[in-house]
Design a binder for these strands. Structure first.
Length: 774
DNA sequence: GAGGCGACTTAGGAAGTGGCAA
DNA sequence: TTGCCACTTCCTAAGTCGCCTC
């Protein structure tokens, strides 16, 4: 930790620091400092030079908006109600460490009458509260925990990873119990029974769903009134490699100490990955690895290129292979063991409803895989101990039991936050959280709220656009910069672009942090006037490249902002995200830069669906239209993915199938023709020949349908090569638009949302009819 | 008002899974 | 029955933005 802090102080602005002059005074001091034409350099940049790092923060946006006409609906209702409720439960830090029993004793009962908080909006209506779960489900004893861990850790070939695998299958199992264990052969009755079971399970699930959106919301800030869980699941301890597996240094075998060996194995496991070829990764790894070594090891091992991890790598690959080749029984045993872990740690009780936890496992140690040119890639992510973990739960709930011989860092009862456990990771010093699954009340409620804010923007976006268009002519440079930035955020769905500590992360930017080098201005380009060419790395080091014709006022301003600046200077040197968001919040409560992304994504989907959907289309065509609309949004938001490795091959395979199908269609058509001819020659009186004609007709139809379906699939696939649809679908598109569209055009919702997406959007599915307008 | 921190959302890649064609 | 591949889920990094402290 100390090391990062030092690094923070040392690593400084590079390209900017030499170039920037300090400007005096703030803009309000007079037109002199901020007048148009004075495009010199910024306070902001100067600060970078002085302080080495810059991070600024925005002002609070005050709460909820006035009710405009339509937000009307359930949401308004929901929000209004919370105002009458009580103050948050007081948060107390309890630095208590040690055994849970003593903790429980010290925790007082919650003062509130819990039931009082659960007054259903529509009494007697469909909402049902799940009965309380059997206590033991959330309350393992230390010995049962230990035993469970052993079961999993000791399983045949390879523990850690097999576990993950089986856990997933287990999840599927939960969803589709009937399809899981593959018996040798199932009779028709079995299959029928399985189907019925599946339907029954679905119904039950639906009945048991917590319809939180029909309940009153808590007062501001309060996230829950009761929270109980079993704490996080810790990854198994390191098991040294067998003596037969050697590590060599300079050609000679070296037996490493367990801690050095563990880190060496992290590297060995990644040898197939490009990371291990990168200089920064290798240097960071070596540095951190040496810190885990004994003094003797450290004095011996000084150069990574003299290290031979070959046998360790081979062992790892053999384990992966062995895992693949496990027998059904072995796989089943792993599944079962992992199911126990999920049962034990994967759920919590939130206001007495059983909720799935999103990430209940502590992140295992390993090598940090930063994205892009991350300066910290390869550093060691250390093993997290219970002593590093803060537990958050209700007073009066059962306190999670730490692993034997350990204690928690802290026990907290903070019901104004949604996390169940947290710890600070060592590489970047950031806090990691254990939180609920996307289908939980806490996440769903927030999601709903997000889309409501975006819908509210719809009602005032014209005024805001008018305003920033006016501001493009402002005498204040900062106002002009804000207007241009807003223009980009609105038109191009750029992210806000907070400032980052340089040298701590990859060099990526968003709108406010764009530098001169990231844009090129073209008076004329490809038949358009006033074109801005963007080329920069955004979030996750994904390249944003776009050539955009802009209005003249924007273009002229950009020229002005770039005057007398070096490529590495900030384009918007009088602007940061706090200023921008403060301004936006003053225009509409709750409005920030990111709301524009949500708004533009959702409105684009709605418009595209209107444009692309044809009433007479079949389901396959409808889905292609939907995907195209979705794709338009993904392009707008620049959601890219690496083309799948097998893309070319699978595209070729699909094309081959299409060709085969075409041949079949030709054949089917000629057979139909022949059949018709024969039937006609007998005066259409032979019923057998008539039947034959009908059969051939059906065959042609079948072929055509198949062909169409495959061609649509191929088009979809090609268009989707480098575009990730999932991110926008999950995070930016108001699900009510999709639900309404499905209902309106008779498209099964399952074609648009998979099971977990339907769970996540249960609130939207339940409340939306086909008339919904974003 | 700046800066640091905390809480939460958004993001792409890796790993796992299961359906389907051969 | 097997192996491929599309789809799903997991994992955790990397953003945004609000709050608190000085």
């Amino acid at each position: 930790m100390g090391r990062e802090k030092d690094a923070k102080g040392e690593e400084k602005v590079k390209h900017k620091s030499l170039k920037l002059k300090k400007l005096s005074g703030d803009e309000s001091a007079g037109a002199g400092g901020d007048a148009i034409g004075n495009s010199a350099n910024s306070d902001k940049s100067s600060k970078k030079i002085e302080n080495g790092k810059v991070r600024k923060k925005a002002k609070t946006a005050s709460a909820q908006a006035d009710n405009s006409e339509q937000a009307e609906t359930a949401y308004e209702d929901f929000v209004m109600k919370k105002k009458t409720l009580k103050k948050p439960v007081i948060v107390e830090d309890d630095p208590l460490e040690g055994h849970s029993a003593s903790v429980s004793e010290r925790i007082k009962e919650e003062p509130e009458d819990e039931n009082a908080d659960f007054i259903p909006k529509n009494k007697g209506q469909k909402r049902k509260r799940i009965k309380e779960e059997p206590r033991e489900c959330l309350s393992p004893t230390p010995s049962s925990k230990k035993k469970l861990k052993q079961e999993v850790d000791e399983f045949p070939s390879q523990k850690k990873k097999t576990k993950k695998k089986s856990e997933k299958s287990v999840k599927k199992e939960e969803e589709e119990p009937a399809t899981v264990s593959k018996k040798p052969k199932r009779s028709k009755e079995d299959i029928q029974e399985a189907k019925l079971l599946k339907i029954k399970k679905k119904e039950e699930e639906e009945q048991n769903r917590w319809r939180w959106w029909e309940e009153e919301k808590y007062e501001d800030g309060v996230k829950w009134k009761f929270l109980e869980h079993n704490g996080p699941y810790f990854p198994p301890e390191y098991q040294p490699v067998p003596d037969s597996v050697h590590f060599y240094y300079n050609g000679k075998p070296v037996k490493l100490s367990p801690s050095a060996e563990e880190v060496a194995l992290f590297f060995a496991q990644m040898l197939d990955h490009e990371y291990t070829t990168k200089k920064v990764f290798r240097e960071n790894f070596l540095k951190d690895w040496r810190m885990e070594m004994t003094p003797e090891e450290r004095s011996l091992i000084k150069h990574l290129n003299k290290c031979d991890f070959g046998e360790m790598h081979a062992m790892h690959k053999a384990k992966v292979e062995a895992r693949k080749n496990m027998t059904k029984e072995e796989k089943q045993a792993v599944k079962d063991a992992n199911q126990k872990i999920v049962d034990m740690f994967g759920y919590c009780l939130l206001d007495h409803h059983k909720e799935r936890i999103g990430n209940f496992k502590i992140e295992p140690p390993g090598l940090f895989r930063g994205r892009g040119e991350h300066p910290k890639q390869g550093m060691l992510k250390k093993r997290i101990q219970p002593e590093d973990v803060i537990i958050n739960c209700s007073k009066g709930s059962r306190v999670p039991v730490p692993p034997a011989g350990h204690h928690w860092k802290e026990l907290r009862h903070d019901n104004t936050v949604t996390w169940l456990a947290s710890w600070t990771e060592n590489v970047q010093g950031s806090i990691k959280y254990i939180m609920l699954n996307a289908n939980s009340k806490l996440k769903g409620e927030k999601d709903w709220e997000k889309y409501e804010v975006a819908r509210k923007l719809k009602t005032c976006v014209d005024d805001i656009r008018y305003q920033y268009n006016q501001d493009l002519k402002s005498k204040q440079m900062s106002t002009r910069q804000r207007a241009v930035a807003l223009y980009f955020i609105d038109k191009l769905a750029l992210r806000a672009g907070n400032e980052k500590e340089e040298g701590e992360t990859a060099d990526t930017v968003g709108c406010c942090s764009l530098r001169v080098e990231h844009i090129t201005l073209h008076d004329q380009l490809e038949g358009n006037e006033c074109v801005v060419e963007f080329d920069f790395l955004g979030k996750d080091s994904i390249r944003y490249y776009n050539k955009v014709p802009v209005i003249k006022k924007v273009f002229k301003n950009l020229k002005l902002f770039m005057e007398n600046k070096e490529p590495g200077d900030d384009l918007f040197d009088r602007l940061n995200t706090q200023m921008l968001n403060k301004h936006l919040t003053s225009l509409m409560p709750g409005l920030t830069a990111k709301v524009f992304r949500t708004y533009n994504a959702s409105i684009t989907l709605q418009q595209q669906l209107k444009e692309l959907t044809n009433k007479g289309d079949n389901v396959a065509e409808m889905i292609l239209s939907y995907n195209r609309a979705n794709r338009a949004v993904a392009i707008l938001c620049n959601h890219q993915r690496a083309p799948p490795k097998t893309f070319e091959q699978s595209m070729a395979n699909l094309q081959a199938k299409i060709d085969t199908r075409k041949e079949q269609l030709t054949l089917a058509k000629s057979e139909l023709k022949q059949a018709k001819k024969e039937a006609k020659s007998k005066g259409n009186s032979d019923p057998k020949l008539q039947t034959l004609v009908e059969r051939k007709k059906a065959a042609v139809k079948r072929c055509e349908d198949h062909l169409l379906k495959m061609e649509l699939q191929a088009t979809d696939k090609e268009e989707n090569k480098q575009i990730a649809l999932g991110t926008s679908k999950l995070n930016y598109l108001d699900p009510r638009i999709s639900v309404a569209w499905c209902k309106k055009f008779g498209v099964p919702l399952e074609k648009i949302y998979n099971k977990s997406q339907r769970d996540k959007f249960a609130w939207a599915i339940d409340m939306t009819d086909e008339e919904f307008e974003f």
